[in-house]
Amino acid sequence: MIPTVAEDRLDARQLAEAFRQFSEASEALTGAYAGLQAQVGQLTERFSVLMEALPAGVVVLDRAGAVLQVNRVVERMFATVPPGTLWSHFSGSRLVATETPGEWAVACGDGPRRVTLQEAPLESGEGGIVLINDVTEAHRARLAAERTGRLAAMGEMVAGLAHQLRTPLSAALLYTATLAQQDLKPGDRDKIGLRALERLRHLEKLIRDMLLFARGETLGREPFPICDLVAELAHTLEPVARAKGIALAVECDCGRTEVVGDRKAVAGALTNLLENAVQVLETGGHIRFDAGVEGAHACFRVADDGRGIAPELQSRLFEPFFTTRPDGTGLGLAIARGVARAHGGDIGIASEPGRGTTFTLTLAMGA
């Protein structure tokens, strides 16, 4: 069927109307797109201003973990972070774990700084943001507060310290004066000389413990196997326990796990617990020393079957200068707790009169 002239005119009008509507829609879309571009520009500008205004460092990552954008705080910390760099590789090469879990050391232009990291993925799954907070001043304030607390404790106990220092010093002077007598037999001279030396060594230990407590632990960082440390301590203590007629049982169930921290300081803290157990036990007593991994912590236990500790004394055991032994300095457990806490752990006690005592020292695996 051949279309009429009227039908041709109708089709032309419809085509023209459709073209007009298309043009209007196109213009509307163009305007909307321009509006969106303006909004994106404003949001981008606001985001950039916010990035630069934040006191924390900000690193924007894409979904692959590569750096898209950083703010000036990050640039000041690291000098440069090239876009496209994998953040995991970059941070692994520039950040060094410290003795405090969750804190990292970074070498900046104005000296070493301490930072914490917080990573948050975007809800869209298209990347994430890393916040870097500088906690250097907070760390310094914490160290200063700890040192002030130690010095305050020493000030409160100065009278007791004078007594503790005077007693071994007076004994050493007395023994030394006796040695000057001409009519001493060789055997007596040797005995008195050994006693004087013993008192002087006790005095030296007391002074060393006081200085260590006042100064605080300067912790090094090195990985060391738990089992090796346990074996070394057992080898050192076993002859001492055997000489007193005490049985020592040792077990390490850590699977060759390593801890990162100050090996010497940890060994000193555990030695203090072991020596305390030997000193409180009589002949025929038993000590159990074991180690293992519990969750995110390495766990060391020193248990004895001695007379136990009264509940009212347990709360005071870790107080500086508190001791239940006449020859004790009262600083060993306080220093040991400081070492444990510096490694992200602590020391706990479980004791019951007549049923023995167990000390538990923990260290954070990621310390």
Rank of each mutant, 00 (worst) to 15 (best):
E52C: 03
L54F: 03
E52W: 07
A53Y: 10
V40G: 04
G84H: 09
T30I: 07
V60W: 13
E27C: 06
L50F: 15
L86F: 11
L29G: 04
R72G: 04
G57F: 09
Q39A: 14
D62F: 09
A53M: 14
V70M: 01
P55N: 07
S88Y: 09
V59M: 05
G65R: 08
G57D: 08
A56S: 15
Q39L: 14
R63L: 09
A28N: 10
P83F: 06
M51Q: 09
F47C: 01
E52G: 05
A79I: 08
P55E: 06
V59I: 15
M51T: 03
G41H: 13
T30W: 04
Q39P: 02
L61N: 05
A28F: 08
V60K: 00
R46Y: 05
T44G: 10
G65K: 10
L61K: 13
A66L: 11
T80G: 09
L43E: 14
A53Q: 15
A79P: 06
L54V: 07
G35S: 13
V73F: 01
E52S: 02
P82H: 06
L61A: 09
V40Q: 07
L86T: 04
V40K: 15
V73N: 00
A32N: 06
L61M: 13
E75N: 11
V59L: 04
V40N: 08
T44F: 11
E45R: 10
T30E: 11
G84Q: 10
A28T: 12
A53E: 13
A34Q: 10
A79V: 06
G41P: 05
T85P: 04
A38D: 06
M51H: 07
E45I: 00
T44D: 10
N71M: 00
G57I: 05
V58C: 01
G35M: 13
F78A: 11
E27I: 08
W87Q: 08
G57E: 08
R46M: 11
D62H: 03
S48I: 02
V40I: 12
V58K: 00
G65S: 10
Y33S: 11
M77K: 09
A38K: 15
E75K: 08
V60N: 01
E45W: 07
L61E: 08
Q69N: 01
T80V: 09
T44R: 12
V81C: 06
P55Y: 12
Q39G: 06
A64C: 09
A38Y: 03
L43G: 03
A66R: 15
L29R: 13
A56D: 14
E75I: 14
V73G: 00
A32V: 05
F47Y: 10
T85F: 03
S48G: 06
R76D: 15
Y33F: 08
G31Q: 15
G35L: 12
L36W: 07
D62V: 12
A64R: 07
D62I: 08
D62K: 13
F78Q: 09
V73R: 02
T80W: 02
V59G: 00
L54H: 06
V70A: 02
A79R: 12
G57M: 02
V81H: 04
E27K: 15
T85S: 14
M51I: 02
R76C: 06
G84A: 07
E75M: 12
P82R: 13
A53G: 05
A53S: 14
V59F: 01
Y33V: 08
F47V: 01
Q69T: 01
A53T: 15
Q39W: 11
V74D: 02
L36Y: 05
R76S: 10
W87A: 15
